[in-house]
């Protein structure tokens, strides 16, 4: 960790990544003005790897994912600059028809609330097999048989008997499994899970997390796991990208983050994880509210809430600093954070 320089996203093994988001900007043009929601996000993903994307509500985790999927409504959304490379090809420059072929087949996505994300009027078997029928040219019968296999794969009991059931007839956990089965139908190489367990009971959360981890390993998929719960990612993620106000403020291996956060915001998130050994003691939470993206603070967007903020933080926007080992932090005092000398 000697020389610190402005980084492009860290590359592992020098080659090209399966998926690479490069300096992405997204803004929403609304009646009240322009909200700059994503301000230069870069991250990447390799096969078989899990990237956890963390951050408070409104930090831009979902918008980034929707930009990757190409399901942002434009307008109001606009992508003034940036690239999203899948196997080296820029998705943002593709014609819509070609882009559509990527969705579901190469990159799939599952959502937070499976009840509203599934269509209420079609049986689950129909929904899981829809892509197989309409895009893979399978017969109705073959597609349904494959749907049963997929439901077995995500461990839905008595899959064949439930193929004609409707989403509302399933429990929350089973419904999320249906969602996962549907996303896996076309053997995607990348699965984006946008807070897949937030709507579920704690015990069910763990089961779904385990399932996603297993599927990722068995199918050698790249998994982007979006969550605002640092607690759940420790076991499943390889790397973590922490987002704040539309930027990646810290990007590192999971173990490094837990041991030595390199950004004050990450530290704040870590302090707010409920721990088994500290039951009863009050949780530290990050004081203040996320910034208004129509009028973001000058300098470091986190400075109004940062307990380490200095004069420079209010005027200079910190760049992403490469701290070595694929680690970056967007704080003027990242090095001091790591050394433990920042007061």
């Amino acid at each position: 960790m000697t020389d610190i320089h402005v980084s492009s996203p860290p590359t592992v093994g020098g080659g090209r990544h399966l998926l690479e988001v490069k300096d992405l900007f997204v803004e929403f043009h609304t009646r009240d003005g322009v909200a700059r929601v994503i301000n230069g996000v870069s991250y990447h993903l390799d096969p078989g790897e899990t990237l956890a994307v963390l951050g408070e509500s409104g930090s831009g985790k979902s918008v980034t994912a929707q930009a990757i999927m190409g399901i942002l409504d434009m307008p109001p959304a606009k992508i003034p600059s940036g690239q999203i490379l899948y196997k080296g090809e820029n998705l943002l420059a593709m014609p819509e028809e070609k882009r559509r072929q990527v969705r579901g087949k190469e990159i799939s996505m599952i959502f937070q609330d499976a009840l509203s994300a599934l269509n209420p009027v079609f049986p689950v078997g129909w929904q899981i097999s829809e892509t197989l029928r309409t895009r893979a040219g399978m017969s109705k019968k073959d597609a349904l048989n494959r749907a049963v296999e997929l439901m077995d794969l995500v461990k839905i009991p008595a899959a064949r008997a439930r193929i004609r059931d409707y989403p509302h007839q399933f429990s929350g956990g089973m419904r999320q499994r249906v969602m996962i089965a549907m996303a896996l139908a076309m053997d995607p190489k990348v699965l984006i899970a946008d807070e897949p367990t937030t709507a579920l009971d704690v015990t069910v959360q763990a089961q779904i997390m385990d399932l996603l981890g297993d599927l990722r390993r068995d199918l050698n998929m790249g998994l982007i796991l979006i969550t605002h719960d640092l607690g759940v990612v420790a076991d499943v993620a390889d790397r973590i990208a922490v987002m704040y106000a539309g930027r990646i403020v810290e990007h590192a291996d999971v173990r490094n983050v837990y041991k030595h956060p390199a950004h004050p915001y990450t530290e704040g998130l870590l302090d707010s994880i409920p721990r088994l050994d500290s039951k009863g003691t009050e949780l530290a939470t990050i004081k203040g509210l996320p910034p208004n993206l129509m009028r973001p603070p000058t300098g470091c967007a986190f400075h109004p809430r940062c307990k380490y903020a200095k004069a420079v933080c209010t005027t200079e926007t910190p760049l992403s600093l490469d701290l070595g080992h694929g680690r970056t932090s967007a704080c003027h005092f990242a090095k001091e954070m790591l050394d433990g000398t920042l007061r």
């Binding site: 999927m69 559509r100 969705r103 579901g104 799939s108 996505m109 959502f111 269509n119």
Partner: peptide
């Protein structure tokens, strides 16, 4: 504007479908 429309689009269904 329903969520299931977002899902159908992310499955790669064409707009007319």
């Amino acid at each position: 504007r329903a969520d299931f429309v977002r899902t159908a689009r992310s499955k790669g269904m064409p707009g007319r479908r």
